[in-house]
Nucleic acid binder design. Structure first.
Length: 266
DNA sequence: CTAAAATCCTGGTGGC
DNA sequence: TGCCACCAGGATTTTA
């Protein structure tokens, strides 16, 4: 359940139960979950550290800890974080358990085992190479245009490149291109000033919409609700474009499924 | 330099 | 019901 809006929603939901709490135990059930530490190192280093703040950088959750460490969690494709009573049943896909000082546990559940938990005193080693966050007002349209200077390659893979711009995933890349009415196959250095301005606004609109909507109904999203109704391109292969009625196309671009309207998006 | 393919993993889905 | 190919919201590494 990745992408910036989901991660932001998870962060907001974890602050109340976790900020101010102290970790008392740690158990790694799938060894590769932790980096760069071994499970034994992680299990001895986390306990006694208190959570002082939880923030987000790109698709990473960032836990500020009292001993000066930072714990980053990347959910990748299927990760999720649960706060559950210590005596409650542990789901089979839980990969790490972090005990709290109030009878609860933070449990990292991740079916596909791609997710990672980093514990380090050097945040730069984890998030140092990430591109800019697209949502703060300090990130201007001029900043966005500057990113495209002397960049080659097609547009969509560039939007997915976290070192180029941080936080955009496959869904919001497709949605942003649709909103901006730009073909995701375009060479990045052929976009006009007008198109770049549209794309900048589209990215922020799509991401903000995702945050607002998920904040309101996170449960409905993952219980199989009407979430997909909010997408205009992603996952709508063969269905009519809401703008012109043309069937939405699906192609593979940069190894990722890509959905777009061949008529609206030029 | 771009770019495609392989890799890490499990589970759901749709075709036969 | 079984079997199988294919698909999945990420990101890095390898290969061309």
């Amino acid at each position: 359940m990745p992408e910036l809006p989901e991660v932001e929603t998870v962060v907001r939901g974890l602050r109340a139960p976790l900020v101010g709490r102290t970790f008392t135990t740690a158990k790694v059930l799938w060894p590769k979950t932790v980096k760069p530490l071994t499970p034994a190192e992680f299990e001895s280093r986390l306990p006694s550290q208190k959570v002082t703040a939880i923030t987000r950088r790109a698709k990473y959750l960032q836990f500020q800890l009292s001993a000066g460490d930072t714990m980053f969690i990347h959910l990748k494709m299927s990760g999720n974080l649960l706060v559950e009573p210590t005596d409650s049943p542990v789901h089979k896909h839980v990969r790490a358990i972090m005990g709290l000082d109030n009878g609860h546990q933070l449990r990292f559940k991740d079916t596909r085992k791609f997710g990672r938990i980093y514990l380090t005193d050097d945040p730069h080693s984890v998030i140092g190479k990430l591109g800019p966050e697209p949502l703060p007002d300090s990130f201007t349209v001029d900043d966005f245009k500057a990113l495209f200077a002397k960049r080659r390659g097609r547009l969509k893979p560039l939007l997915l490149n976290q070192q180029f711009i941080a936080g955009i995933g496959n869904i919001y890349a497709d949605e942003s291109c649709f909103i901006a009415q730009i073909d995701p196959r375009r060479q990045a250095d052929t976009l006009s000033e007008t198109e770049l301005t549209r794309l900048y606004q589209a990215i922020r609109q799509a991401l903000n919409h995702g945050i607002v909507h998920k904040g309101a109904s996170l449960d409905a999203v993952y219980l199989g609700g009407e979430f997909q109704n909010h997408f205009q391109a992603y996952g709508r292969t063969g269905q009519p474009c809401f703008t012109c009625g043309t069937e939405i196309s699906r192609i593979v671009l940069g190894g990722r499924s890509t959905h777009f309207c061949s008529r609206c998006q030029q």
